[in-house]
Design a binder for these strands. Structure first.
Lengths: 184, 184
DNA sequence: TGTGAGTGTATAATATATTATACAGTCCAC
DNA sequence: GTGGACTGTATAATATATTATACACTCACA
């Protein structure tokens, strides 16, 4: 009963972030504040049902609760210089936020020069979704053996675990805004 | 359907998929096979520690265990006509995918005419993140009492539970690509 | 037929989680 | 100061999870 690493501190941080007292949270969840106190101090390992009750009251999913969520930025705005380039080769991938660890959302401003492409590796992500919208130019997108060319104002959306590949078959840069969750 | 999804059937399917008997799994996890049996038939709600032991033996993370991996759309590509307008007033919000129910990711192509704005209501979302990138024009964005004007290629990212408001204070349309998770 | 090695289930005994309390500290109004 | 409404913690009593069994069933093989 000492092996539950961080359920307690996680719950406490979560509760604080939503500005709830142990009693308020316990009321919403239909539990007693003592239980919340026990859990937060890692005195007990709550049952799934109990934790689900608590998270439903916040609300938050069990999956999100257990996905590592570190401290988050308090800086909400990002100038162009604040975007972090995580691309390689000729491809530019500008990411919103430098410290995404644990954040459930990654947004990228992508620019593909003519002829450039992303690796065709299956790139086995965790469960999650990935999608985007083409802003300028054209891109050939292959998802799980299905290929299509997308133009400006067209989009895509697929589960991240599928192998996928981007290739700019046009003659001008292709600009895409993409989002995926959770970040790999 | 996921509110009361049973841990039991999920664990049983998982165990079967890895071709393990209740005893083999229990041994690996350092538990008794009776416990596994109880859990699979939903006779008990296991403690987090116990479930973690079991999943470690498979292995699988708690987050992945609770993440819904149900059937989803097999249509990955979206032409401009396939985007669903969920906006109101003068604001156009084109959503990728018509049937997002249960999907953890919503991507929007937003267009704000000069002078238009989104409701200033706190708009208390579920937990999650929301962010975006300005493509054209300028937008005045207010997040939790902080206000800033963003131009093209600038972005924003914040936890969805904070009150926020958009207003186009420029003289041309403002185009934004945004993403949020989970969809409200 | 058996016998042995598998399966999963059912049930008391025991360990643990959850409740119902009491307690101590903080903050604010008066 | 004093009272009241909050915090969060600590500890017995109770409810529940987990264990240690026993049991019934299937399948392969002699």
């Amino acid at each position: 009963m000492d092996i539950h690493q961080n359920v307690g501190s996680r719950l406490k941080a979560l509760r604080k972030r939503y500005d709830l007292s142990q009693r308020k949270l316990a009321d919403k969840a239909g539990l007693t504040h003592g239980t919340v106190s026990h859990i937060e101090r890692d005195k007990i390992s709550p049952s799934i049902g109990t934790l689900r009750q608590i998270l439903d009251a916040i609300p938050m999913t069990l999956s999100d609760f257990f996905s590592d969520q570190g401290e988050r930025d308090t800086d909400f705005f990002y100038a162009e210089d604040d975007l972090l380039d995580v691309g390689s080769g000729g491809v530019s991938l500008l990411q919103i936020g430098k410290n995404l660890n644990g954040l459930p959302l990654q947004i990228l401003l992508e620019r593909y020069p003519p002829g450039s492409e992303t690796a065709s590796t299956p790139y086995r992500c965790r469960s999650g979704e990935e999608g985007g919208i083409v802003i300028e130019g054209e891109i050939e997108l292959t998802i799980d053996d299905r290929t299509r060319v997308l133009k400006a104002n067209e989009g895509y959306l697929f589960p991240s675990h599928l192998p996928h590949k981007m290739r700019n078959v046009g003659e001008v840069d292709c600009v895409i805004v993409s989002a995926c969750t959770p970040p790999a």
